[in-house]
Amino acid sequence: MSLLIDRLWQGLLDTLLMVGVSSLIALIAGIPLAVFLVTSGKGGMFEAVRLNRLIGSIVNLFRSIPFLILMVALIPFTRLIVGTTYGVWAAVVPLAIAATPFFARIAEVSLREVDQGLIEAAQAMGCRRRHIVWHVLLPEALPGIISGFTITLVTMINSSAMAGAIGAGGLGDLAYRYGYQRFDFMVMLIVIIGLVLLVTLIQLGGDKLAKAMNHRT
C-alpha cells in the first residue's frame, strides 16, 4: 500500500514537473511570439509581412502534428538539448515545443481583441512602439492571456500522459500501466480522480486570477 502511495506521489510530482516546466517555457516564449504575430502583419506596428507568414507557418506546422508523433520525431533534438532521450527531462523538451505554439495562438487572439482605438490613443499621446506593447497591448490582453495559459496547462496535463511512452512517468503513465496493462482499476480510478481534482484546481485558480485582472466591467 505504501508502495502504491509512493508511486502515486512520484507520479504527481513528475506530472507537475513536466507540465510546470514546459508551460513556463511556453509562457516565456509564447508571449513574444504572439506579440510578433499580432504586430508584424500588414499595416502592423512592426510590419514584416514575409517573416510573419514564415513564423505563422512554422507555428501551424507544430500545431498540426499529434503530440505522440512529435515526441518521437524530436528525439534527436531532445538528445541534443538535455543529453538523454528517456525520463522526465526528455519529455519536457517536446512538451515545451508543443505548448509554445499552442499558447502563442491563444494569446494572439486576446492581443488581437485589444481595441484599435487604444493603440491610436497611445500613439497620439507620444508612445513609442515598445511602450504600446508594454503599456497597452499586454495589460489590456492580460485577462485573456491568463485564461489562455490555464487552457495550456490543462492541455499539457493531457499531453504529458503520453510522455510515459518515453519513460517519463507521471500520473497518466501510472494509470496506463496499472489500469490498462494490469487491469488494476482501483489505481486507475485514484489517478482519474486525482487528475480531475488537479484540472479543476488549475481551472478555478486561472479563472479567479483572470477575473481579478479584468477591470473592464
Binding site: D115, G117, L118, E120, A121, Q123, A124, M125, G126, H135, V136, P139, E140, L142, M213, H215, R216
Partner: peptide, 18 residues
C-alpha cells in the same frame, strides 16, 4: 515630441481598462 505637444480626445474615450 510633436505628439506630446498635441493632446487628443476621442468619441469612445479610449481609456486603458486595465
Amino acid at each position: 515630441a510633436l505628439r506630446r505637444r498635441i493632446g487628443m480626445i476621442f468619441q469612445h474615450f479610449n481609456l486603458l481598462s486595465a
